[in-house]
Amino acid sequence: MNELLQYIFAGITNGAIYAIIALGFTMLYNATELINFAQGEFVMLGALGLVSLRTGLHWPLPVAFAVTVLGVSAVGMVLERLAIRTVRKPHPIVLVIITVGASILLRGLAMLGWGKDSFSVPYFSKHPPIQVSEATILPQSLWIVGIVLLTVGVLQFFYKRTLAGKAMHACAINKKAASLLGIPSERMVLLAFAISAALGAVGGMIIAPITMCSYDMGTLLGLKGFCAAMLGGLGSSFGAVLGGFLLGILESLGIGFFSSSLKEPTAFLLLLLILYIRPSGLLGAKAVKRF
């Protein structure tokens, strides 16, 4: 029984990361109906950015955190401005392939910039692991879950209470009608790219201390995040969070009660099952009610 608790802790930590990556997918999908396969690469840029600023330049954590978020969202904006907006016939499949290309490009550039080695970053705070009955939690896990929940809250506030958020909501429901009403839809797309890149960067930074960062870390994380987003229902913020935690916990239970070689199959089998029974995902309601 004590192992169960430890499996769940491990699952929650991983799940929080999947959740924040899934949020990035969902966020962009809402504003543009586009699946950005470079999302995992934003995660990688966030992690490696923190590596450079923290262990390379020894900046204090809050500053390094903020600068990395801004830097990666700038990369997201440049990507939108140069590669997405300039497409003459923005057919969805063309755009998706462009994001795949962008992910390969970003990975290649990161390999040139940071090299092929892995890096590690110190934990955010220097507390010993916390004992909960027989299981232990790493303080970094609390940081991860806390930051993810905070991010979800801020995102909800943005959608519900700010003009820009409502405008983005409007664009998502009907882009043409929104632009007829004077909402600059192109700028909204740019903003959506910036925010989803920032979400990726946050995900990368919070996981950097518990894992090893390298130029090719983003691909698998991006896929898992995509899985989580599909699981929860693409387009639903709460669905993304739920999907992320669910995926993380199921993976870790899969290792615990079946076999570690069944970790990936458990997750992906579940995804197939849910897509078969509920193609819109767990929380994916009708197209209009996406938030």
Partner: peptide, 11 residues
């Protein structure tokens, strides 16, 4: 490419 092996170690 796994980021966390606590589940395997717990087992």
């Amino acid at each position: 490419k796994d980021t966390d092996m606590t589940a395997q170690l717990t087992k």
